[in-house]
Design a protein around this nucleic acid. Structure first.
Ligand SMILES: [Mn+2]
Ligand SMILES: [Mn+2]
Ligand SMILES: [Mn+2]
Ligand SMILES: [Mn+2]
Lengths: 151, 151
DNA sequence: GGCAAAATGTAGCACATGCTACATATTGTA
DNA sequence: TACAATATGTAGCATGTGCTACATTTTGCC
């Protein structure tokens, strides 16, 4: 122990709440890659009928090796089906997640745009922010958009 | 190659932009832990005069082992000074980062609160969102706050 | 001063997520 | 149909970030 704290123990933020917040953030990070992948797969399936490893690599900004290993995880976790040298398809679970994520992504981008943020910055920031937006916050974003639109 | 795409190649989002966004998000994740640590160290230094490993562990919701290894990285990267069995202190570089992060954290929380989000949810979401807020978006949040306050 | 409790340090494991280099399969086309 | 280009797969490396179990040091207190 150290001698004398200059101030009585009065943490600016309660440790318990910050610990809880950070743990939540870590959980969100763990599911984040799955979310971005299923979103990209759904996009590609819509745009060109199917998603190939090489498309995903280009889209996600990683090598095909990384895509491959991640797809194995997604398959293990029930989000996609994939056979060697074939296209990748979403399971029902994957589709459900993709829908949720696409909708949430669009909402976050629109919300940022409504604050006057430029298209490109809105896209870039949304890609990170989207994974940390709770149901309550998403609802607040939608509420704000409805208000901004009505005017 | 696969036979015939049902639609002409018209990706919903351009691959290049999404790749760039995701790469930016990954870069932000790489600096995120450093940001949360220096913020916590600054908080603790203010509240009780110094930051100890055990305080950080409680605060960050991880074991003291994780704190230890992370502190080695922060030391390597010039954010903190630490000697065995002693308290941890921020370098000038660490202080600068902590100030920026504390200010940004406070802005994000206030912004979410101004949208009607409850205290706890605002804290939790802000802990993740803060690391993905660009200068432009932070400015927009501040602008919005000034407007909301003035009324 | 000495001892028990607390704090700190370290060894070693697991998993995620990126990479390069190289091997194999598929496909478009000459 | 063969072959070159493209796509896909795999081995092996690095780093980050979490953990448990155990060793060592420091500290509060009798
Ligand atoms: Mn994203
Ligand atoms: Mn994040
Ligand atoms: Mn944070
Ligand atoms: Mn923070």
């Amino acid at each position: 122990m150290q001698p004398s704290p200059r101030h009585p123990k009065k943490p600016v933020r309660p440790s318990a709440l910050q610990a809880e917040s950070l743990q939540q953030t870590r959980r969100e990070h763990a599911s984040e890659i799955a979310e971005d992948y299923v979103e990209a797969i759904a996009d590609l399936a819509l745009a060109q009928g199917e998603a190939r490893v090489v498309d995903l690599a280009r889209r996600l900004g990683v090598t095909h090796v990384t895509v491959n290993r991640t797809l194995a995880r997604l398959q293990r976790d029930g989000y996609v089906t994939a056979r060697p040298y074939r296209a990748i398809f979403l399971t029902a679970q994957g589709h459900a997640l993709a829908d949720t994520c696409q909708r949430r992504h669009a909402t976050v981008v629109s919300f940022l745009r409504s604050l006057g943020i430029a298209e490109k910055a809105a896209e870039i920031d949304a890609e990170g922010i989207e994974h940390h937006v709770s149901t309550e916050t998403l609802a607040a974003f939608e509420r704000h958009l409805r208000r901004a639109t009505r005017r």
